[in-house]
Design a protein around this nucleic acid. Structure first.
Lengths: 200, 200
DNA sequence: CCAGCTATATGATTCAAATCATATATCTAT
DNA sequence: ATAGATATATGATTTGAATCATATAGCTGG
């Protein structure tokens, strides 16, 4: 339960999805907010041209559709990337409780500011054209450690906007450069840990 | 004033920055929240390795450091990319008012969900490798109309992660393809407005 | 009003990453 | 345990966008 502080006031239920099953589809009315308990949910958006693009991958402990709290319709589709357990909350119920309990709303606000920061960082990573530099910058951004250490390399590649083949190759080069170490598909950065950056 | 609904309760002052001047520096205690009135502010982050990366460029009407509302220290530096006017709000004052007025907090929440969505959209655009398709997708996303119609082409190019030369060329091609029309540096999309996508 | 800066524009060239192809390893479901 | 799907890996080739270069137009500040 990601909204642990809401445990007693917000009702929820758990659902199970098999690989590829849809949680919701782009355009659906926003009725629920979700959090991933186990597995992963891919958010995919169909562009005007019909090319689907991966917008986000949510892993255990991550919430989904918070960004749609004020939207009538989902702006992307959500489907299970593997067998996945999801907790379901009612959007309207959540909105009501937030209105009643400002301190809970404040928590949500905090969560969203973090999301904004992460997304900006990702945006900038995507602006880097040099593969080595891009990968190193991604590895430097911490946010791959916590929740994403078990992310398939292929998904990381897509996340940072790079062909997966290039990603595999770049990892190999970085390894032989001594910049990283690898253990199976775990990537371990090998760098002098600069101190003085604890503030993040 | 970006927090127009707070106009009467939240004090603010305006400051002027010359090109290159710092608004705040990474690691500084977060005392203020800002919004850009005129010009642009670059957010730059020094990574662990010391390589500075551009995290975001905020233009007129954009707020800065909302994402730092709950941080003790700024996670990046902000400096003027050109001569810039900035409105300054006190973080603590803002936090206090938000706590007292849940409806204002709700507004901020809504703003942040919009930001998250925009950032995800931008992320998606950046994942498109084909220049024509990328530009068309950007043009299809509305968010260039409202606030960014007067954004220099060069800045748009950077925003969507493309060399400005390529952007100029692509615009020219799209124009001769009849896909867009141009008036000075105003870009006008000429497409059958795809219906069924109103929800976004 | 002028000088200097910045944006726009476009040509030529390079090159690195996308793409295509194929093979093997690994996971997953039954 | 096995089959099918998916991830990882790597080679060969192509391509299109970055880069470098240069020119002009348009702003902006003093």
């Amino acid at each position: 339960m990601i909204y642990s502080e809401l445990q007693n006031v917000l009702s929820s239920k758990t659902i199970h999805l098999k690989t590829g099953e849809h949680l919701f589809t782009q355009g659906d009315a926003v009725k629920n907010i979700y959090s991933v308990k186990k597995g992963r949910i891919k958010l995919i958006r169909d562009t005007l041209e019909g090319t689907p693009t991966l917008v986000h991958v949510a892993y255990a402990e991550e919430s989904i559709a918070e960004a749609s709290l004020f939207s009538k319709n989902y702006h992307c589709s959500a489907l299970a990337g593997t067998n996945t357990e999801v907790t379901v909350y009612s959007k309207n119920e959540l909105l009501k409780i937030l209105q009643e309990k400002p301190e809970l709303m404040m928590n949500l606000l905090r969560r969203l500011t973090t999301q904004v920061r992460d997304l900006r960082m990702l945006n900038e990573i995507k602006s880097i054209y040099n593969a080595k530099e891009k990968v190193l910058t991604y590895l430097a951004t911490e946010f791959h450690r916590d929740n994403e250490s078990d992310l398939p390399l292929k998904d990381i590649a897509q996340k940072i906007g790079m062909a997966h083949e290039t990603f595999y190759r770049t990892l190999k080069v970085l390894e032989s450069d001594g910049k990283i170490k690898r253990n199976k598909s775990q990537i371990i950065k090998r760098m002098a840990t600069a101190s003085g950056c604890e503030g993040y």
